Computed example of a mutant assay.
Amino acid sequence: MSEADFYWDVNLYCKKTSETKALWDSCIGRLSGKTLFVTGIGFDPRAVKSIEILFDKKAPPEQFHCLGIKSAADAVGANSAQKEQSNIRKLKELFPERLRIEHSIGSEKQTTSLALCILLKRLNKEHFFDEFDQIVIDVGAMPRVTFLTLVPKLLEQFIGDKGELNKKNMFVIALENAQFDSSITEHVTDANATFLHQYSLNSPSLSPDLPGVWFPIMGASRKDELETIKRDIQKVLRQDGVEVVPILPFPSIDPKLSDKIIGDFYHVLFEEFEVNYSNILYAAENDPFHLYRRLMKSFMKYAKNFTLLGGGRFVVSPLSGKLMSVGAILAVFEASRELSDERLPFTPLISAYDTQNKYYFGVPLVEPTQYKVQDNKVNFEHAELSLLWLLGDAYDE
């Protein structure tokens, strides 16, 4: 197994706004056919800001359309309702007669992830995505559970049977703004972890003795969420001794961020979870493909170690920024696909004698039931608009 066998061993990633804008103006914005933007509907101004950056605050041409998905919990404070209506009004101005808004909000009977999967199934029955040659997913204004469900579901739809990446152009963009993110407080009334619908460990009760490994992608101020997920993972796996492999952001914009996280989480990580220092991994905060490679290598290493045990179960919890979360879900998507029963006999990632093993993947999150937004003036001048080209013309052989 080598990195050359990974889907995105070679990739196209623009980290800065200047790089993204240059690629958009010279190439992506000129691609033939119709382009669909998929964005979040809510109080977050990034639903509009990213599009304004790409089109210099002008209305996009007629071949550009927009799908807005309302999936966030209610927000209070800082005139959140008015800001949501303002974002919708601006999107209608940018995409006159070309904006479609859908609701996908969780309830007591179904998680947000399941609600979104049901919505996507309905849209596919309408052949909604088939009319577009390019799809751009703007994760900046989306709740974590939304884009972590959406990205792999669309990849699954458009990627080739043998992992070909050139079937349809698909991009992810993200306008990261730490100042704005720090002004949002997530409130949880039901402190239980829920799994993404498509990554729920696939009925692990069928194989309760398989070993489990948990990869929390660490971020600041996530202590309660971390402890909740750990508790619920143990319930689902029915194991107390789950191996924990924390992944810390380094290098990062704040060079001391990893040290701060270790300091804040020291008791939880090293005393409660009994993490071995050698288990700590590092991945670049602003390069999602770096985290993707680290996770893929770890999945394959543990899969090889679990050969004599009949397989294993992998749990990934993205508690970090959105770019790192995208890198994490790309690794989960690829590894779960390549290690599935259908693909195991053919995958280049596992030796032939491993093909009788069973591998399960889970992505647990704690969904907020309400957002509280502080009334701060947001400055996007220093925020960077990043772009990942995941599928399409860039991967033509």
Rank of each mutant, 00 (worst) to 15 (best):
Pro216His: 06
His197Pro: 04
Ile233Phe: 06
Asp209Ala: 09
Glu227Ser: 12
Asp224Arg: 08
Ser207Asn: 15
Asn202Gly: 15
Ala220Tyr: 11
Asp232Phe: 01
Thr228Trp: 02
Pro246Gly: 05
Arg238Glu: 13
Lys235Asn: 14
Ile217Arg: 08
Phe215Gln: 05
Val245Lys: 07
Asp240Cys: 09
Gln198Tyr: 03
His197Gly: 00
Pro211His: 10
Gly219Glu: 06
Arg231Ala: 11
Arg231Gln: 11
Val244Met: 11
Pro211Ile: 01
Gly212Ile: 06
Gly241Pro: 11
Ile229Ala: 02
Trp214Ser: 03
Ser205Tyr: 12
Lys223Val: 07
Val213Pro: 01
Asp224His: 05
Gln239Asp: 12
Gln234Met: 12
Asp232Ser: 05
Arg238Cys: 13
Gly241Ser: 15
Ile217Asn: 00
Ser221Ile: 12
Tyr199Glu: 04
Ser221Ala: 15
Trp214Arg: 00
Leu196Thr: 02
Ser200Gln: 10
Gly241Tyr: 12
Asp240Ile: 07
Leu226Ser: 02
Lys230Ser: 14
Met218Thr: 01
Pro246Glu: 09
Gly219Ile: 11
Gln239Ile: 00
His197Leu: 05
Glu225Asp: 09
Leu196Ser: 05
Val245Tyr: 14
Val244Pro: 09
Leu201Ser: 05
Arg222Met: 11
Val236His: 02
Leu237Ile: 15
Trp214Ala: 00
Ser221His: 12
Thr228Leu: 04
Glu225Met: 08
Leu201Ile: 10
Trp214Pro: 07
Pro216Lys: 04
Ser221Cys: 09
Ile229His: 03
Ala220Gly: 14
Met218Pro: 09
Pro208His: 00
Leu196Gln: 04
Leu210Gln: 06
Pro246Val: 11
Pro216Arg: 00
Ile229Thr: 02
Ser200Phe: 00
Leu206Ser: 07
Phe195Lys: 02
Leu196Trp: 01
Leu196Phe: 03
Gly219Met: 02
Leu237Met: 11
Leu226Tyr: 05
Pro204Phe: 12
Ile233Gly: 03
Asp232Tyr: 04
Gly241Arg: 13
Leu210Tyr: 06
Arg238Phe: 15
Gln198Ile: 00
Asp224Glu: 14
Arg238His: 15
Val213Gln: 14
Pro246Ser: 06
Thr228Ala: 05
Arg231Ser: 13
Gly241Lys: 11
Ser221Tyr: 14
Asp240Gly: 12
Val213Tyr: 07
Phe215Thr: 02
Val244Ser: 12
Asn202Gln: 13
Ala220Cys: 14
Trp214Asn: 09
Leu226Thr: 05
Ser203Cys: 15
Met218Gln: 05
Leu201Trp: 04
Gln239Cys: 10
Ile233Ala: 11
Lys223His: 07
Lys223Ala: 08
Tyr199Leu: 01
Lys223Met: 11
Leu201Arg: 04
Lys235Phe: 07
Gln198Lys: 02
Pro208Phe: 03
Pro204Asp: 02
Gln239Met: 02
Leu206Ile: 07
Tyr199Ala: 03
Ser221Leu: 15
Ile247Glu: 00
Gly219Pro: 09
Pro204Asn: 10
Arg222Glu: 13
Gln239Tyr: 13
Val236Met: 12
Lys235Gln: 09
Ser203Met: 13
Lys235His: 14
